[in-house]
Structures are given as C-alpha cells and as structure tokens.
C-alpha cells in the first residue's frame, strides 16, 4: 500500500479525490496496526518497567508508569548473583540449537514422505501421529522417565535432543505437511521426467520452495525449545545443568492450593529474569522474520 502512495506521486492522472482517498486509506491502515501493536506491547512494556522497581513500588496502587526507584542495574545484577544464570543460558542455547536443527531437518524429510508419497497405512499412521498431541502429558510422564532411565539418559541432555532428530514431533510434521501439500505436484513430475530422483526433488525443488515454512518451523521450534519447562525439570537433576525455563521458577513466589507458600516476594526479580530469558527469542525473531515472507510468493507458480 505504501507503494501505491508513491505511485500516486508520479501518476498525475489520478484525481485529487482519489489521492486524498488513498492517503486516508493508508492512514487508517497504519492507525489500526498501531493500536493493535500498542495493545500487544503494553504487557511487555509493563514487564520492562516492573523489572526496575522495588517490590514495594511494584505492588503500589495505582501503579507508577515509570519506576521512581529505577533500580534496573541492581535488580538485573541481583538475578545474576542470586542464581547461576549465565550457566543456564549456555545450557539452554546448547540444547535449543541441537534440538532445533534435528527437529527442523527431520520433520521436513518426514513431512515430505507423508505428503508426496502414497503408501499403505499412511493416513492411519498420520492420525496416530496427531494422536500423540492429544494425550495429556501427565500420564505418559513417568513411563517416559522410566524409558530414558533405562537408556541411562537421566541428568543428560539426550532426552531433550535425541527425540527431536526422529521426526521433530507431530506439530512440526503436520505443519510441514500442510505447506508441502500446497506446492503443486506438477513440479515433482516435471523434475522426474527430467530424471531427478525423489531425494533430489526434495532438496532442489521442495525445500527451496518451503523457505517460509522452514523459517516458521525454526522460529517456533526455537521458542518452544527455549521455553521448554517440563522436559528439563523432569529429566535433569543437577542444578548446573538446568535450563533458563526451569531456573525462572527459582524466582517465582509460589502459591499452592489457594494459600501462599513460604517465599519472599521477589516479583521484581522475576520480571528481570523473565526479560533476560525472552531477549534471545526476541532478537532471533526480529532478525529471522524476513525469511517468513521470502520464497515462492513472488515466483508466480501456476495456480
């Protein structure tokens, strides 16, 4: 739409009314986008502000919109000294990187199998695949723990990384399948006539065309792995191996069964830590998001 505005400058043919109308439309668009953005931003902004307050000021009614106490430095350094935050960040980065690579690659390959080939039992197995998303995790938690303990994998990162290399989970497979199904099959056939085998078609045609999907998968995978709480909590025992999502709980006041449980209120530190946990995801999203919209959009395949 911004381009249309530019267009009107050069194109003198348009009437004044048309130009005014266009400007009005564009302004309205920006207004809507901005209102939504502010509404979305507000809680994050509030988290930032809170992370610089004293606990007294954090609970004040009505709240202050910028901390009077401004102890950002004190709060953030307190988080670093209160818990081994740096170590946890490194652990998290490690686990996330490997789980992400495995999850993205293997789910693309598996989704290719599900979407481009017909084989007996395919649809049934796909339904079973989705079924793994439906069973509440509480009831498989302990059998899974026992399984990994038989592998001697407890208190290692294997349970958090290795399964990702085997298909990357039902969410990834389903998402990738949906995108692959959107790519016309004529492309495969054309390539096949030219003598390409299926592996080659995957790497030279399908995946390059799936860049937005892969970028989406990678981003969501990063955020998912980064914030994974239950897995690290259950499978890791040693404090120095924890990830940030588990570490965050160190700072969280706890409430159980409606009554507060012994804990010093330290929500201001929680806010600071939460922001530090979110920051890498934020940067990744900011930098990586242009890939969402690159790809076949402009290539103009047949419809």
């Amino acid at each position: 739409m911004a381009q249309q505005v530019v267009g009107t400058k050069s194109g003198q043919r348009h009437s004044r009314d048309w130009v005014v109308g266009q400007i009005g439309k564009v302004s309205l668009l920006y207004l809507i986008v901005a209102i939504g953005a502010i509404a979305s931003m507000f809680p994050f902004f509030w988290t930032v502000v809170s992370s610089g307050k004293t606990i007294s000021e954090l609970y004040r009614y009505p709240p202050t919109f910028w901390p009077e106490s401004t102890q950002f430095v004190k709060n953030y350094s307190e988080v670093w000294s209160a818990v081994p935050f740096g170590r946890w960040l490194l652990n998290t980065a490690w686990v996330t990187t490997w789980a992400l690579i495995g999850g993205t690659l293997s789910s693309a390959i598996v989704a290719y199998g599900f979407s481009r080939f017909r084989f007996p039992g395919r649809d049934l197995f796909f339904v079973i695949t989705l079924g793994t998303l439906m069973l509440p995790v509480e009831v498989t938690l302990i059998p899974t723990y026992l399984l990994f303990s038989k592998f001697n994998w407890i208190d290692t990162y294997y349970p958090l990384i290795v399964p990702a290399w085997f298909g990357g989970g039902a969410f990834n497979i389903f998402l990738m399948r949906q995108f692959l199904l959107g790519i016309p099959y004529d492309l495969d056939e054309a390539a096949r006539i030219d003598g390409a085998n299926s592996w080659r078609i995957l790497w030279q045609i399908i995946l390059p065309l799936s860049k937005p999907a892969l970028a989406t998968l990678a981003t969501l995978g990063f955020i998912g792995n980064w914030n994974n709480f239950l897995g690290p909590l259950i499978f890791l025992n040693t404090e120095s191996k924890y990830t940030v999502a588990v570490g965050l709980r160190y700072l969280q006041s706890t409430f159980a069964g409606g009554s507060a449980v012994v804990s010093r209120p330290q929500d201001h530190l929680l806010m600071a830590a939460a922001l530090m946990v979110a920051l890498p995801c934020l940067i990744l999203f900011f930098v990586g998001q242009r890939y969402f919209v690159e790809g076949i959009a402009t290539t103009g395949l047949k419809g």
């Binding site: 938690l141 302990i142 723990y145 026992l146 303990s149 407890i154 909590l233 259950i234 025992n237 404090e239 924890y242 588990v246 570490g247 965050l248 709980r249 160190y250 969280q252 706890t254 409430f255 159980a256 449980v261």
Partner: peptide, 23 residues
C-alpha cells in the same frame, strides 16, 4: 541438596519419577 525449583506441582512428579526408577 538436590533442589527442585517450584512447589509440590514440580516436586511430586520428580519424586514419583525417582521412586519408579529406583533412584
């Protein structure tokens, strides 16, 4: 000290897992 962050919702599943695995 094998500490678990959180409260009983985090602690109990851990203890059950340890017990089931004999660790």
């Amino acid at each position: 000290l094998e500490t678990i962050p959180g409260w009983t919702p985090e602690y109990i599943p851990k203890i059950l897992s340890f017990t089931a695995a004999g660790t």
